[in-house]
C-alpha cells in the first residue's frame, strides 16, 4: 500500500503527539506544577520554551497539558462516536417512529450552539474531567448521529442490502456485514474531524476558565495563565497555538487520506 506524502506527514505528527501524551511522565523534563525558575524566563538550555507566569517550565507544562487535552478529547470522541453511530444506525435501519424520535431530539439539541449548551450545563454542574468529557461527548454525539444516519440510510436503500433482506438475513448481519463495512471510511474520517473539534472545544472551555481546572495543565489553560504576558511582548501564551494547529492539520491530512481511499474502492462504473 502506497501512502501519499501528505498523509504520511500527518500520520507521523499525529502519532508523535499521542506518544508524547502517553509517555508525558518520561518526556517532561520537570514536574507538571513544579516551580523551577523566574517568571517568564526566555528560552534557554534548561528551559527550551522558557518558563510561565509563575516560573514553571513551559515545555513540561506543554507536554503535561498535551496529555490532558488529548486524553479529554479522545475520551469525548470515543463517547460521541459510540453513542452517535449506534443510535444513527438504529435510526436508519429501524426507521419509523424510532427514527422520528431520535432525529427530532437531535434537531432540538442542535438548535442551540454547542458552546452555549455547554456553558449552560456547566453553570450548574461541577467542572470535573468526567463531567467535561460527558458534556462534550453528548453534545458532539448529535453530529455523529446525523452523519452515521445519513450514511446508513444511503447504504440501506442499495440493492445489495435489499438482496440480503430477500435472502432472509437477520438484522445483525445486515448492520454488521452489509452496512458497516461500507460506512466505515466516512465515519473514520469524521472521527478525525470530531477529535479536532474536541481539542478546540476543550481548549476553548479551559481558556474561558470553565474547562480543565488548575493546577492541572492543558493547552487552553496555558493560554489563560500566560495571556497577561502578551502585552509585554512575551509569547508564552501563543505556544499552544502551534501545538493545536499542527495537531489539527495533521489529523486533517490523515482524515482526507482515509476518505480518498474509500472513493477509490467505490468506483467501478467503467470497464
Amino acid at each position: 500500500m502506497r501512502i501519499p506524502i501528505a498523509a504520511l506527514i500527518g500520520l507521523i505528527f499525529t502519532g508523535a503527539y499521542f506518544l508524547a501524551a502517553i509517555f508525558a511522565g518520561l518526556l517532561a523534563p520537570y514536574g507538571m506544577a513544579e516551580i523551577v525558575g523566574d517568571v517568564w524566563e526566555p528560552a534557554s538550555a534548561e528551559h527550551w520554551l522558557g518558563t510561565d507566569s509563575i516560573g514553571r517550565d513551559l515545555l513540561s507544562r506543554m507536554i503535561w497539558g498535551g496529555q490532558t487535552t488529548i486524553f479529554v478529547a479522545t475520551a469525548a470522541t470515543i463517547l460521541s462516536f459510540t453513542l452517535g453511530s449506534i443510535l444513527g444506525f438504529i435510526a436508519a435501519v429501524r426507521g419509523g417512529w424510532v427514527d422520528q424520535l431520535l432525529s427530532r431530539g437531535v434537531d432540538l439539541m442542535m438548535s442551540i450552539p454547542s458552546l452555549i449548551s455547554a456553558l449552560v450545563v456547566l453553570s450548574v454542574m461541577p467542572v470535573t474531567l468526567p463531567v467535561l468529557i460527558l458534556v462534550m461527548g453528548l453534545l458532539d454525539a448529535t453530529r455523529v448521529f446525523r452523519l452515521s444516519r445519513a450514511v446508513a440510510v444511503d447504504i440501506a436503500v442499495m440493492d445489495y442490502v435489499e438482496a440480503a433482506r430477500l435472502r432472509g438475513e437477520k438484522q445483525t448481519w445486515i448492520i454488521f456485514r452489509e452496512i458497516l463495512p461500507n460506512a466505515l471510511s466516512p465515519l473514520v474520517a469524521e472521527m478525525g474531524l470530531r477529535f479536532i473539534f474536541s481539542v478546540l472545544f476543550i481548549s476553548t472551555l479551559s481558556f474561558l476558565g470553565l474547562g480543565v481546572q488548575p493546577p492541572l495543565a492543558d493547552w487552553g489553560g496555558i493560554v489563560k495563565e500566560n495571556k497577561e504576558g502578551i502585552v509585554y511582548g512575551i509569547p508564552a501564551a501563543l505556544i499552544p497555538a502551534v501545538a493545536i494547529a499542527t495537531l489539527a492539520i495533521s489529523v486533517n491530512l490523515v482524515a482526507d487520506w482515509v476518505l480518498n481511499r474509500t472513493t477509490s474502492l467505490k468506483g467501478g462504473r467503467g470497464g
Binding site: Y160, E178, P181, N182
Partner: peptide, 10 residues
C-alpha cells in the same frame, strides 16, 4: 438492473 449497486463493494 444495476449490477453495480446489487453487490456489496466490500
Amino acid at each position: 438492473q444495476m449490477a453495480d449497486v446489487a453487490m456489496n463493494p466490500r
